[in-house]
Write a protein that binds this DNA or RNA. Sequence first.
DNA 1: TCAAAAGTGTTATAAATACACCCATGC
DNA 2: GCATGGGTGTATTTATAACACTTTTGA
Lengths: 258, 258
Amino acid sequence: MAVQDQSSYKVKKYFEHGVDVFLPHLSINYIVFGFDNPNLKILVQRLFNQEFWLLPGGYIYKNENVNDAAYRNLKLSGLHDLFLRQFKTFGEATRVTKKSVPKPELLGISKELHDWVTQRFVTVGYYALVDFNKVKLQPGLLSNECTWLDINELDDLAMDHADIVREARGVLSEDLLNFPVVANLLPDSFTIPELKQLYESILDRSIDRGTFRKKTMKSGILEKVGKRRNAARRPPDLYKLNQEQYIRSLMKKTRFGF
Amino acid sequence: MAVQDQSSYKVKKYFEHGVDVFLPHLSINYIVFGFDNPNLKILVQRLFNQEFWLLPGGYIYKNENVNDAAYRNLKLSGLHDLFLRQFKTFGEATRVTKKSVPKPELLGISKELHDWVTQRFVTVGYYALVDFNKVKLQPGLLSNECTWLDINELDDLAMDHADIVREARGVLSEDLLNFPVVANLLPDSFTIPELKQLYESILDRSIDRGTFRKKTMKSGILEKVGKRRNAARRPPDLYKLNQEQYIRSLMKKTRFGF
DNA sequence: TCAAAAGTGTTATAAATACACCCATGC
DNA sequence: GCATGGGTGTATTTATAACACTTTTGA
């Protein structure tokens, strides 16, 4: 399950140029969604010896675009070439102390660094969509352990991170109905029932099979590429994204009303 | 038109406790929408002797919620009890230098303050909806002059503020179709044709009269309160918001598809 | 041949769209 | 009475939702 890495000093790598190269009081946090059929998961991390999980995140260089920082920090966790979207900024002054503040003193870091990472942060929230099966879990520079957490089991998240996840899910639910973004969560080829299950796990409700098929087919972004053969039942058709039509549909902004 | 106030030193009032009480590198900017039938307007300010207009904005105290700061800063411009919604954070490192950087040296402020206000800022964007006729233009503490600018005439905005306005308009267009937020832009009582014109000015396209009426009526949030008598033609019915139904409809999230 | 899931079709209802037509007013 | 914009009705098309029926497979 969880992937661990006990080198407690790699945090120093992240801060190799000190803390003053970063914008103070401003951080980035990610909700990385992955679809482990039939469940929607999010990627979480923790510092070793700590009780609670944290959303992945990072800081922004003083001369760096926030969006660029978003991609850079994700890359440090081995995630790249993914769908990434800023969705909200969280600015409560007490957000860090809401629940289970991390204890950086356990990391054996300097007083200066300790003070820096425990300052008040306004955090810019991004959500990312990844192909669950392609992701190799790796803790990144700011954590020692990472794992997938079920979207419905957020009790073990620290600070206000459970709230952030819920907001992200709400925004994703909306985006889902406006754009076929969700294909970013699936492998290159997939079946309609899989896509339907994905919609259902995000929206948290069931959708009629016939209606779902008709709508997704009509959008024209799916292209049949074969059949899947694996069980004692009718094999589902396999589809892939028609990239051209996909782009076009992003432009048109056709709404999928389920 | 524009309202002026030549006291160039009131900026010092805003910074009476120095700059260190504020979060560095982080600001708030507003797009205050007002409907001057038939045109959609936004509120802009400028520092005297400067060429370009700026969006209203402000800074955040170190121990203050960003949302609270948003309301507080608006209040300094005489705006309160309005609809306010965070819609996006703008984090380009070079956003300030995109076009026409303000010249604070013209204000006769200290070197320290000059350096502070010209640092790199990540800005949290909010849009506000106000009743155009109720707003008394007043420049606030961070500007000497303010006015309404037509939503389609953004050439005179400094930095990346025109981009920010365009993004805000896009978000408002979406929100408009999901919630009856737009009533916040109208006086207490208004006619259906006025409401329609408002939709059209935001969405920048025309809507069928019959369809518009049917949809808005069906939502049940409008209550007839009389007729308007003013021209050589059939007098339109006057409506007001049914507050109870309005709240309910905010919950239900019914979509207005025009 | 059977169970199970995939695929397809049917029908009823509701929504969106584009009109046409009538209405109330001041000049 | 007439020009003007406001209010209402209708017909067409399209979307939504629920459900039933058929197909394909391995066991």
